[in-house]
Amino acid sequence: MNIPSGLGEALLHSASDAIIATDRDGRITFWNPGAERIFGFTAAEATGQSLDLIIPENLRARHWAGFRHTMETGTSRYGHGDLLSVPGLTKDGRRISVEFTIVLLRDEAQEVAGTVAVMRDVTKRFAEVRELKRRLAGTGSQS
């Protein structure tokens, strides 16, 4: 397969989707312009920080249990194109809805070295679907 020159750089530095890489301890090692746009933290503010930066406090224990399991086993339920929908936390403290997939990063010995997540802000769509469901539920109860 012939990959066009510059394709990787263009994707990594895109401002549409967030691309966030971590080491195996969950420290952010890469933060693209899309992550900056979605979460509000600059790359300088985010790089080196724990993923707790963007995980709502009440979800951190569950996140870290899954993260540690993935690091130990080298498998993830969300690594094969499956989308995971979760709340995220922005710099100004707002909760947003994000969908993402992850890819495991491996070292030369094929041991898990970290992750890359590709994330999209779906807050608006999530709110629209919730409102539509609310309206439909209201309509159905009047019959």
Rank of each mutant, 00 (worst) to 15 (best):
L89P: 07
E57Y: 07
G81M: 07
S76H: 04
L59A: 12
P87S: 08
G93T: 03
G88L: 05
R106S: 07
W64S: 04
E99A: 09
G79T: 02
S97E: 14
V98W: 02
G93S: 11
F100Q: 04
E111N: 14
G88R: 02
E57K: 09
E108V: 08
K91Q: 15
G74N: 11
A65L: 13
D82T: 13
P56A: 04
W64K: 06
G66L: 10
W64C: 05
N58V: 08
V98Y: 01
H80S: 11
G81K: 03
R62G: 11
S85P: 02
T73A: 09
R95K: 10
T90F: 00
S76L: 05
L105S: 13
F67W: 07
R62P: 01
T90P: 03
R94K: 13
A65K: 13
A65Q: 15
L89E: 06
T70G: 07
H69N: 14
Y78G: 00
G81F: 02
P87A: 10
V86F: 09
T75N: 12
E111W: 00
Q110C: 04
N58L: 05
L84K: 09
E108A: 15
L83W: 10
I96M: 08
Y78E: 03
G93C: 01
R95C: 07
L89V: 03
T73F: 05
R106T: 12
E111C: 07
T90H: 01
T101L: 00
S97H: 12
R94W: 00
H80G: 10
G74V: 05
S85Y: 12
A109N: 13
P87F: 03
T75Q: 15
R95F: 05
H63I: 00
H69Y: 10
P87I: 00
Q110D: 15
W64R: 09
R68Y: 11
L105I: 04
E57W: 01
D107C: 09
M71T: 05
L59T: 07
I96D: 09
E108D: 15
S97W: 13
E72T: 13
R95N: 12
D82E: 15
T101M: 07
V98A: 04
Q110P: 02
T101R: 05
A65C: 06
R77M: 10
R77C: 03
D82V: 10
I102W: 01
L105E: 12
E99R: 12
G79W: 00
T73N: 11
E111P: 00
G93W: 00
I96S: 07
R94D: 12
Q110G: 09
R95T: 10
M71L: 09
R106Y: 06
D82G: 12
Q110I: 00
L84V: 08
A65G: 08
T70F: 01
V86M: 09
H69V: 04
E57T: 14
L84C: 12
D82M: 06
V103P: 01
G74R: 11
A109R: 14
G66V: 03
V86K: 03
G74K: 12
T75P: 02
S76G: 08
D107M: 07
